[in-house]
Design a protein around this nucleic acid. Structure first.
Lengths: 206, 206
DNA sequence: GTGATTGGATAGTGTTGCTCTCCAATACTG
DNA sequence: CAGTATTGGAGAGCAACACTATCCAATCAC
């Protein structure tokens, strides 16, 4: 398959495919001559994945590159790979002041209340802290009760997800990394729809 | 309070405050002379809200403006206001082809399976469709079982949220609109942390 | 052989979120 | 009350981003 066929198969302009190639989101095809390269189905799938990540998931090209790099070549520790994937995902949080001996107090308290592991090196801890601080700054702090409710439901979802993780290591990495990124928009959309559903049932209109 | 004091109170450069003023995210202060205007605590709170929305929540200035406009002056129908808020939030989805008599088949099937209202005019329906389509295109389609699990948990969260809605109309609008936007990053961070917790407990490292 | 196409490199474009520079009018300081 | 500093407002400038368009020589298809 030449580049124009690849672009057509993915429904993208050739110029955009070239751009992704330049940016390292798409592996180069096999060069068959100075002006020809060969692409296959794996390239088509990769382009679809790139569009899923930069579109609905809302990643920048840079963030997508980091996620794809993890899928292409994960470490041998799945737990660490999950951590790296979360670190590559938005929201980006500024690194904590190394002087500060308790940089994430809200997140620490939340995780302790939930009885979960608190590891300040995990990117999601900083993300939780910043989300809690933002809600607080905006005048809508999150109560312990709400945190417990959200945390409990999130944990149930996580248990479900992990139970269905494929056994084969390579698939497990893809499942973990891509599942984190791809399924988040689904969960958010469902939450919004559930709010609508509950509101409708309670007749909270005018 | 003059502008420089306002900027200092919010921890922002004066130039940025001027920018938000130009963009209509911040209401003008009361002009006391040609070169002086007076700001108060409400302006400080508003700036904090703006930073929360454009920061951790990840809204663009344009999206934040739409959300703030809803808070400032909501319709008299809370249900519709919720719909508008969701429409202002990412991910932005291209409008459906009006020729298409079933533009959101995946979302419709999902909501039917969940026994929830299916209203194609609601923005979250299109968002769900695009999230489901993206996961599918990326080679990780969402099973019915997973959809039920996520949908159920989302619904429990929504019931919790709605139960705690303030009675007073003005606060109810703020709670609904801002809660949708501000609490989403919290839920996502908790899901990521729950994944980590479950993985750690099952010793899914190397 | 010849005209179209290819991959690759380079430069240009429109948008976004600030940031900088100016300015005359006003406020504070001694 | 003279002199300096600061203010709100308007405009242009800027860096990052995600493409998009233009060239070009090599090569392919007829």
């Amino acid at each position: 398959m030449r580049m124009s066929a690849l672009a057509a198969a993915a429904g993208l302009p050739v110029a955009t495919v070239k751009y992704y190639l330049r940016e390292g989101l798409l592996h180069p095809g096999v060069a068959t001559s100075a002006t020809q390269a060969d692409y296959d189905d794996a390239h088509v799938r990769r382009l679809r994945l790139v569009r899923a990540l930069t579109g609905p998931v809302g990643l920048s090209v840079q963030q997508a590159r980091r996620i794809l790099a993890l899928v292409d070549d994960p470490g041998d520790d799945l737990y660490e790979t999950l951590g790296s994937a979360v670190g590559a995902l938005p929201p980006e949080v500024p690194p904590a002041d190394p002087e500060d001996d308790d940089p994430y107090p809200r997140a620490r308290a939340a995780l302790e209340a939930l009885g979960q592991v608190y590891d300040p090196a995990f990117a999601a801890v900083a993300q939780l802290e910043s989300a809690l601080a933002a809600a607080e700054a905006a005048g809508m702090p999150i109560s312990e009760e709400r945190l417990r409710e959200y945390g409990l439901r999130a944990h149930e979802i996580a248990e479900f997800d992990l139970e269905r993780m494929p056994g084969e290591p390579r698939s497990a990495v893809e499942y973990t990394v891509l599942g984190t990124a791809l399924y988040e928009p689904v969960l958010l959309a469902l939450r919004r729809l559930a709010h609508q559903d509950v509101a409708a049932r309670r007749d909270l209109g005018s």
